[in-house]
């Protein structure tokens, strides 16, 4: 008989976010990949504070709304933007007003830092970047000589491991063993491997085991990495989720315009978060 291990992982949305302490470092996915918006709204409702976000490697709506709601003290990202809808207004305002610390990065540097954690090693080398002003403001990054160099003077950048407290994302489904279907969104596996704990919301739980079949096993993030699962219908809304639903463009447009002013942003929270 199979164990029903998802039972040990399933929890309410409220209990799930209660695990995430103020001051935690949280890695979040890019806007096109399984963004946990319902978890984000629950974090705002529980008045989370001083969260340190790591975008893997860029973010948009999720970070903007958390920053606007006063939940964030620091963000490391390669970019923060609402895409076609323009700059992320609450992020932009917070940078100007010196309300949050920003660690500017570049996409593969964040991947490399997470990959170092995934391997349990202290740093990862990466090409490029030397000569960019990003490096000027990153005292935690170091230039080294390539120890295997064939030519003289081959400088290369070393990036420290990024080891977040939590990874959070929203997926189409979990199976009865607590394995999560992530399809080809492998950055979610990277985030989860690198983080100490992973909390996931899913559209549904299916009475199947992804690992029973080789064709579905490759789509799974095994429950080994998962510390809590909650069920949320349309948990990525107003962003889209894989083939299940598209982004709600009208709502995103509304957000982009309401978030331009602090008072309209508060009204947005009243209407869509504190309900």
């Amino acid at each position: 008989m199979k164990s029903l291990s998802i039972k040990n992982l399933l929890t309410s949305l409220q209990n799930l976010v209660a695990n995430i302490e103020d001051g935690s470092q949280i890695v979040i996915p890019p806007d096109y990949s399984f963004v946990p918006m319902e978890i984000t709204r629950a974090l705002i409702r529980k008045k989370a504070r001083d969260l340190r976000l790591v975008a893997a490697p860029q973010t948009g709506l999720q970070a903007d709304i958390l920053i606007g709601a006063g939940c964030v003290s620091e963000i490391e990202a390669a970019a923060v933007s609402l895409g076609e809808l323009g700059n992320a207004p609450r992020f932009t305002e917070a940078i100007k007003a010196k309300k949050i610390e920003l660690k500017d990065s570049t996409c593969p540097a964040i991947h490399a830092g997470l990959q170092a954690s995934e391997k349990g090693i202290p740093f990862m080398p990466l090409r490029g970047i030397i000569g960019s002003d990003i490096l000027k403001y990153r005292n935690d990054w170091k230039i080294s000589e390539n120890p295997f160099k064939k030519i003289s003077n081959d400088s290369i950048l070393l990036l420290p491991a990024i080891h977040p407290d939590y990874a959070i994302f929203h997926a189409p489904y979990a199976d009865r063993e607590g394995n999560i279907w992530i399809g080809r969104r492998r950055e979610l596996a990277l985030m989860s491997h690198a983080a100490k704990k992973t909390y996931v919301s899913v559209e549904e739980v299916r009475d199947t085991n992804l690992l029973d079949n080789e064709e579905t096993a490759a789509n799974a993030l095994p429950s080994l990495y998962i510390n809590g699962i909650t069920i949320c219908k349309k948990g990525s809304w107003p962003l889209g989720l894989s083939d299940l639903y598209d982004a709600d463009r009208n709502h995103l447009q509304k957000y982009a315009s309401q978030a331009r002013s602090k008072s309209d942003f508060s009204k947005y929270l009243e209407s869509y978060v504190f309900v």
Partner: peptide, 17 residues
């Protein structure tokens, strides 16, 4: 930098690509 008059989204992958 860092508290710039006008802030753009960020460098994305440019510093590598």
């Amino acid at each position: 930098y860092p508290h710039m008059d006008v802030r753009f989204p960020g460098s994305y992958g440019s510093a590598y690509l």
